[in-house]
Structure formats: structure tokens, C-alpha cells
Design a protein around this nucleic acid. Structure first.
Length: 404
DNA sequence: TCTGGGGTCCTAGGACCC
DNA sequence: TCTGGGGTCCTAGGACCC
């Protein structure tokens, strides 16, 4: 039996949600009706476009443009900051509404869900359910969604992307030639800016061209990715809607520094601050890490990363920091101007039980107790209620910038 | 005043083992 | 004398997504 899949995608999510929130706060104008974007903070050198209104899109503004570019494209642009707390709130409102239709919902991202409706149609059609969800979200939640209607996840996702906003589109098997094969290859899910030029070089311009290309030829050139793109171009996707919550496979944080840094001592302090955050999140997930990874980005956008497998799993701030510090020293070349620092833990496991330890006693016990005290304080009074004396906090970095 | 931050998955090469 | 062939684990880097 064919699967019955819906893909629900919030239109201009961050901007729409900000608009709804502002209206709720009594704001007179709806920022969806003017040239507006949600953007990062240029003074923190994270000035990129995260979401745009239709009017801003008409100016040619694209997601991930720099705000600098966006302002040139549209001089009377209005810029609003992001607020992930609000986004999570509206994302949850959407999820709760969708739960009335099926409990098989995969939260693909903060603003996208896949619904497996296969056993939940109750005599109705999938398309009708799609329309109903589209109308109800607008009426009850105040923002709009696109809904893709199909027999697998890939086709549902492609369908929801057709024309926006506030639309419902089907993409049945027999519609693939007219609706999907006519599109340029850049529109196909999982074809990014590195692969598209390579395909164009092979005279593969549309998704239809790709679908008709010999699968073995693509496999030879692109490996597994080649097989995947061929299958997607032909509308083939047998993956299930993953509705059960999954543990993360890695946990990481990174910061773009307000100013490039060449001082290894300052970099160490930043690595400490980030290690602390990462370890805290790891413990909140009740996970242990096998591997620590440090990433550096220079002022020229050259990225390097080094990683190290630990002798035994850990979730203590101390272990993660000490390893990260070691990696930092291993990587950092004197004089390099560092723009971004990141720390990540990988190969996460749920417990340290099945670890073969040579000793019976737990030598991390003291650290674990200390971490626990701090975690409790933070969950009660907020993350910043506990700070380190050596920590280079935001104020200090900003001060450093002003001295310039 | 150019260029975020959070992820997942894959690949290629080296080390090491039998 | 002219150099196997598997397999696993680890690391660095890259591609893609939202």
C-alpha cells in the first residue's frame, strides 16, 4: 500500500512568527506587508539574512545574503533581530495542531514537519486533509503554511516548495514529468552549490535530464550521492517518517568572534566557555561523549578541525575542556587570525556502563558532583547565573572591539 | 559593516591487525 | 627476493540541510 504523506512548511517562518508576535504585542504594522528581514547582528559580525518578507524577496534579497548586500538591494529595508524562544513557541503550537491529525509526525526542522497519514485518513482524502491543515493553521495560529501532498517524503517536500505562500500542492507519481522534471536541477533536494555546476558541465540541466541519466554513470562520478540524486530525480524515496524522538548524534557550539583573535590565551578562554556550554547540554541530554572536536576559522574563512577520541566516555566539563585545549594547541599556528571557534562532542552514548574500566572506582566522581551542583543552579536561575572568573564574556569581547 | 549556527552523513587515507 | 589482501578504527575534510 502506498504511503500517504504530508509535508508542512511554514512560509518565511522567522519573519512570519515575528510578525504575529509583534501584532500580539499591539504593534500596528504587519512586517509581512513591508520590505523586511530577520537578520543577525552586524556588530557581532553575524550579519546575514535569516528570513525575508515577500516584498524583500521582490527586491532580490535571498536567505543568507549579508545584511550589507540586502540593504543595497533594498534601501528602505526594515531589519529585525531573531528570537529563537519565540520560534520554539510557535513551532510547538503548529506541532500541537498537527497532532490532531496523526501522531506520526517527524519534526524535520523548527519550521517543517512530515506527517504520515497512511492510517489516519478516516475515509477522507489526503488532499482534503492538506487543505484543512492549511486553512486551520492560518485561522487559528495567524501564520501561513505550504502543504505538500504525495506518496513519499521526498515528493511531499518537493511539492510544498512549488509556489508560495499559503498553498497546497500535490505531486503524485504521474505528475512528476510535468511538475518536477521541468524544474532546474538546483531545485532538487540535496543538490547544493557544489554539485549543481558539475551536473551542468555534464549537460544535465533539469531534474528530468538527471532522471534520464544512466544511474551507473552517476554512481561512478558521485558515489552514494549519485545514486541518491538519481532516485530523487525519479521520485524514489522509501524512507519512513521518523516520529519517535531521537537522541542527538553530536552536540556542538561555535561563536564568530566580534574581532579576530591571535592570542592563544584568549582562544583558550573562549574554548573553555564553549566547552562548558557543550558539556552542560550533553549532561542535559543524559549522554556521554566518545570524541571531542575543535574547529577554527581564520579571517580568510579557512576552516580546520581536529578531533580526538577519548580513552573513556565522559560528560564532565573538565575532561571536555582539557581535550579541547589540547586540540587547540595542536592546531593553532602562531600569528593566525581566528574568526570563529567551535567545540563539538561526537559518538554519543547513553551510559558509561558497558565501558570496560580497569578500576572499580570512578575517578571522575568529584568532577561529576561539581558539574551537578552547577547544572542545578543553572537550571534554576538561568545559564548565566554561574560564570567563571577567567571567562572572557561578551562584555569583555565588546570592550576589546571598542579599543580598536 | 561581507560572509550564522545548529546539525547529519559520507569519503579518503593512514595505522594497525591477521 | 619486489613487495597480498582483507578488515577495522581513527582522523580531517567536505557536502548538504534548515
Amino acid at each position: 500500500m502506498e504511503k500517504q504523506i504530508l509535508h508542512v512548511d511554514v512560509n518565511n517562518a522567522f519573519l512570519s512568527w515575528t510578525a504575529v508576535e509583534m501584532l500580539k504585542q499591539g504593534n500596528q504594522i504587519d512586517i509581512r506587508d513591508i520590505p523586511a528581514i530577520i537578520g543577525g547582528d552586524e556588530s557581532k559580525r553575524s550579519g546575514i539574512v535569516l528570513a525575508k518578507s515577500m516584498k524583500a524577496k521582490e527586491c532580490g534579497i535571498k536567505t543568507a545574503d549579508t545584511i550589507y548586500q540586502a540593504r543595497i538591494k533594498c534601501p528602505n529595508l526594515q531589519i529585525f533581530p531573531s528570537n529563537f524562544k519565540i520560534y520554539r513557541k510557535y513551532s510547538n503550537e503548529l506541532y500541537n495542531l498537527l497532532l490532531e491529525y496523526t501522531d506520526k509526525i517527524e519534526r524535520f526542522s523548527i519550521d517543517e514537519c512530515f506527517l504520515d497519514m497512511t492510517n489516519y485518513l478516516r475515509g477522507d482524502t489526503l488532499l482534503n486533509k492538506g487543505y484543512e491543515i492549511n486553512k486551520r493553521v492560518e485561522k487559528e495560529l495567524g501564520f501561513t503554511v505550504n502543504v505538500g501532498v504525495a506518496n513519499n517524503k521526498l515528493l511531499a517536500k518537493m511539492a510544498s516548495d512549488f509556489t508560495k505562500p499559503n498553498k497546497v500542492h500535490t505531486l503524485w507519481k504521474e505528475e512528476i514529468p510535468q511538475k518536477m522534471w521541468t524544474l532546474p536541477i538546483s531545485e532538487l533536494f540535496m543538490l547544493g552549490k557544489k554539485t549543481v555546476p558539475k551536473l551542468l558541465n555534464m549537460q544535465i540541466k533539469t531534474i528530468g535530464d538527471l532522471a534520464k541519466t544512466e544511474k551507473s554513470k552517476l554512481e561512478k562520478k558521485f558515489g552514494k550521492h549519485g545514486v541518491l540524486m538519481w532516485e530523487y530525480a525519479n521520485g524514489i524515496d522509501n524512507t519512513e517518517v521518523k516520529y519517535l524522538p531521537e537522541k542527538p548524534k553530536c552536540v556542538g557550539n561555535s561563536v564568530t568572534l566580534p574581532k579576530n583573535i591571535s592570542d592563544i590565551n584568549k582562544l583558550e578562554e573562549i574554548v573553555l566557555t564553549i566547552s562548558e556550554q557543550v558539556a552542560y547540554r550533553l549532561r542535559k541530554e543524559k549522554l556521554y561523549a566518545n570524541t571531542v572536536n575543535v574547529q577554527l576559522r581564520t579571517k580568510n574563512f579557512e576552516d580546520t578541525s581536529h578531533q580526538k577520541k577519548l580513552p573513556e566516555v565522559t560528560n564532565t566539563t573538565k575532561q571536555i575542556y582539557l581535550t579541547a585545549k589540547e586540540l587547540l594547541h595542536e592546531m593553532y599556528r602562531k600569528g593566525q587570525e581566528i574568526r570563529l571557534v567551535g567545540v563539538r562532542v561526537d559518538n554519543l552514548v547513553e551510559s558509561k556502563e558497558n565501558q570496560i574500566s580497569l578500576f572499580d572506582e570512578n575517578k571522575d566522581e568529584k568532577q561529576e558532583k561539581l558539574d551537578k551542583v552547577i547544572d542545578t543552579l543553572r537550571s534554576k536561575y538561568g545559564y548565566d547565573s554561574v560564570t567563571r572568573a577567567t571567562k572572557m564574556d561578551v562584555e569583555e569581547i565588546v570592550k576589546l572591539k571598542k579599543e580598536e
